[in-house]
Design a protein around this nucleic acid. Structure first.
Lengths: 211, 211
DNA sequence: ATATTTCGAGACGGCCGGTCTAATATCTCC
DNA sequence: GGAGATATTAGACCGGCCGTCTCGAAATAT
């Protein structure tokens, strides 16, 4: 019997399938997200992504102008994914604001453990690589960090309103501080293959908050 | 007139010169430190180092078994250099213990600015790259971080003794927290090409210390 | 049915980077 | 002063990777 999705692979325009073009394209992006999150941009090869998805090289340059354009698409995809995750955590009304921050940390620990601490944060990876990256990445990466910072700052502002933080606390500065250090924690977690750095940083952050 | 050091370049055993082998070798390491600190290990090419030092490609494998071995040597060199810097800062009796930490931060800000925020921290760079690095690097990088943490913890212990920190403060945990987050700050400073993240993290760290 | 457009297969070129081998000049020791 | 040992290098090799190119076939329009 034939496979459930008889993916024709051979030259010629493929038979019409529901939004197949989008399927292929987004499969490439999804796989690329995993690969770039693990290896970074420069060290990752397009061929690896293609082989893993089962798409021939010729298709790639039909969907993307270049590796650089592909990277941009992957960043956008990751940013959207992460924004959803942050919204889920930081706007969860069933928890107190500070408990939401802790929930994010717990979620991140579980996430890294699930991939044996080989994958880190795509944005952090690429930020570290800026010296060897197309300059076009810089603005996009900065924008993503700005978004994260704003989301966390809003959550911290709720903490102030709820009396969990001292009135007058500088939520923006605290949020900036968190994300700056968090990337370091992710980096270290990859190195020691353990969630300890994530927990260490989170605990230190919580302990240092102005109550 | 001939150059002061008439470096013979051509096949054959070179004329005896005072420790020339060590000269060449350490020149490679010094240049490699700069390059790896900027680009990381995977993205850095040996050719670039060789060209920059004026050593032919064939020579490389006379001095090092492989790129991996070269990387190890560079790590060792960088670790020694950084240990000296930390000793200079953290054991400076002319400053209070906490002022020494701030002195290190100021020094680091100046250092990154001097290279236009293109160079970061070699150890952090390589840590981030672990997924695509020879496994042999892991232990060495961890050891370097452990050394840094211990040096900072000692300084913080002095701060406790001097009454700058609350008695009973967990200096080891605080030191671990600092280095975890600091690497994130360096990463971010490279991204935004500014010392602001370094200062933001340092300020947050200082503000959160138990007094 | 014919022409045109859309999509994909897979090979190819060019480049670059790490590694190895052979060759060569000097040193050392008899 | 000659012979072997040693230090250094030139250059070739191999493999990977990005990007391109041509061809082929299905879908769609006319």
């Amino acid at each position: 019997m034939s496979s459930p999705t008889p993916v024709r692979r051979g030259p010629g325009r493929p038979p019409r399938r529901a939004a197949d073009g989008l399927e292929t394209r987004s499969a490439l992006i999804r796989c690329g997200t995993a690969v770039l999150t693990e290896k970074g941009f420069a060290a990752a090869g397009i061929d690896e992504v293609l082989r893993s998805v089962g798409v021939p090289k010729g298709s790639f340059y039909h969907y993307f102008d270049s590796k650089e354009a592909f990277g941009q698409a992957v960043i956008d995809h990751y940013a959207a994914y992460f924004a959803r995750k942050l919204a889920r955590c930081f706007e969860d009304r069933t928890l107190t604001p500070l408990a939401r921050v802790q929930a994010f940390v717990d979620d991140a620990c579980a996430g890294m453990a699930r991939h044996d601490f080989r994958r880190g944060c795509l944005i952090g990876n690429l930020g570290q690589e800026m010296a060897v990256l197309p300059e076009s990445f810089r603005a996009r990466l900065e924008a993503v960090f700005a978004d994260w910072q704003q989301r966390l700052a809003a959550c911290l502002a709720e903490a102030v309103a709820a009396g969990e933080l001292r009135a007058g606390a500088d939520c923006d500065a605290l949020a900036a501080f968190f994300w700056i250090g968090w990337e370091g924690a992710v980096l270290r977690a990859k190195l020691v293959r353990s969630a300890a750095p994530l927990r260490c940083f989170a605990a230190g952050f919580m302990a240092g908050l102005p109550r």
